[in-house]
Write a protein that binds this DNA or RNA. Structure first.
Lengths: 244, 244
DNA sequence: CATCGAATATTGTTCAACGATACTTCAATC
DNA sequence: GATTGAAGTATCGTTGAACAATATTCGATG
């Protein structure tokens, strides 16, 4: 046995290496576009012109299209044949679908709290703590990201990387819905105490109550978004947007 | 109002139209490759040469690469930078991850049986019936597809198209695992009665028992696959495969 | 026999070109 | 005046070629 347990530094290197070969230009372009879309710099419904974007980012149309594929699969962009790609514009039906999925996944994951890995459980507590400290500093953006971390941590209780990926996609898509209805920054303010309560129940061993609290949160958040989107009845067109 | 509620035939047409614009060569190539991979015609671990495949399918490298992207996102192919794309070869860890996800999603969906749509419930029963008639005809391939349909129907109880898509991907990936361990065609034979039992419990209103039966099935199937894969210790190389 | 390095093969990326499709404009028709 | 139909324009879809970057093969060398 040359690969004894003592010299595990090889594995450590192998793990770090994962960030090295992430050098595909298409992925880098996708990263750039992803943040622009998620931050709301490119509004939902807006078309992404291949030629213009390619010239702006200094990449060829082909690589740009590969980046489009990546983001299309993440449901951040929609591709209409012979028309082009557009920033996704989720509607009320999408939000209902999204929350149906979240209910299944997150509640199922919470239920596995007793069987979950210790680090996974700690990550849930950490996410709530991060939200608390962010609130003390009046950093509401931080509260928002902490909330996302919280739900990702809940999902991770299930111990499936594939599920984690899917929830990541769902939450990113949800962020698009926020931008459609105009980005209320105070959205997460009311939900921090609920996250706290969920963790409290879990640490007390009351898994069922935690699940109910999570369900209540999801119902409330869904309702918030759906009513917000229903009130936003301007422009059914997927393509052009008046602004800019 | 010219578009009165009376003439809803327009909406019906609009719904059917969805199949018309699905005409991208990259997608058609992806369809072809997908069936080849899922049917086991292209073995897991095998590399897909761009030039050779492009000439065989009469498409350019660019479009072929777009097809690769699609299938890579479906986790049927893996892309190693500067080395090429290979048919995915799931290992035991993958199967464990896969079943962790299935447990969460399918059990959560089953639990929503009482709230589910009537057609969704009927689809579950139909899938079991299809399995029964296929078995009577000794059509074991049909039994296999019926089993897939059954679990997709269970998932559909949740009412989320996104969840349905994810489960579709999970099941496709699982099919790859079958091919890795050598494709036991009698795999589904033992599981048909279990599906029957699950539906029986559901129709009797015993949702909890149905969930337990589903869990038992998933444990059993996972174990089946994991032991099958652990016994298959030939070739860690992702690329070349001795055969052909 | 291990190592190094050249030759070869494959992938990564870009570009230019042309056909196909959708959108726009505007005239013709009822 | 509204609808229909026909150019014209802009964009996308697909291809082929080209070169750079990287991996693999294989022979030479010590």
């Amino acid at each position: 046995m040359t690969t004894a347990a003592a010299d595990g530094w090889l594995d450590a290197l192998a793990k770090d290496r994962g960030d090295l070969d992430r050098s595909s230009t298409a992925e880098r372009v996708a990263d750039k576009l992803r943040t622009s879309v998620l931050d709301g710099d490119i509004k939902p419904g807006r078309q992404l012109n291949e030629k213009a974007l390619g010239e702006a980012l200094r990449v060829s149309r082909n690589t740009l299209r590969e980046a489009f594929r990546l983001l299309t699969h993440e449901r951040l962009l929609v591709h209409e044949y012979s028309k082009g790609v557009f920033v996704r514009r989720p509607d009320a039906a999408d939000v209902v679908d999204l929350y149906a999925a979240r209910r299944i996944i997150e509640c199922g994951a919470v239920r596995r709290w007793p069987d979950a890995d210790d680090r996974a459980r700690q990550a849930v507590r950490d996410a709530v703590d991060l939200g608390l400290t962010s609130r003390e500093k009046d950093d509401w953006t931080g509260v928002g990201t902490a909330n996302v971390k919280f739900h990702q941590a809940l999902t991770a209780l299930a111990g499936s990387a594939r599920l984690d990926e899917e929830v990541k996609r769902l939450l990113a898509e949800l962020r698009l819905a926020f931008h459609v209805m105009g980005d209320h920054e105070d959205f997460y303010r009311d939900y921090l105490p609920q996250n706290q309560a969920i963790v409290g129940h879990l640490d007390a061993g009351l898994v069922r109550q935690a699940e109910d609290a999570l369900l209540a949160y999801l119902d409330q958040a869904e309702n918030h978004l759906v009513t917000g989107l229903r009130g936003d009845l301007r422009g059914d067109l997927p393509g052009t947007v008046p602004g800019e």
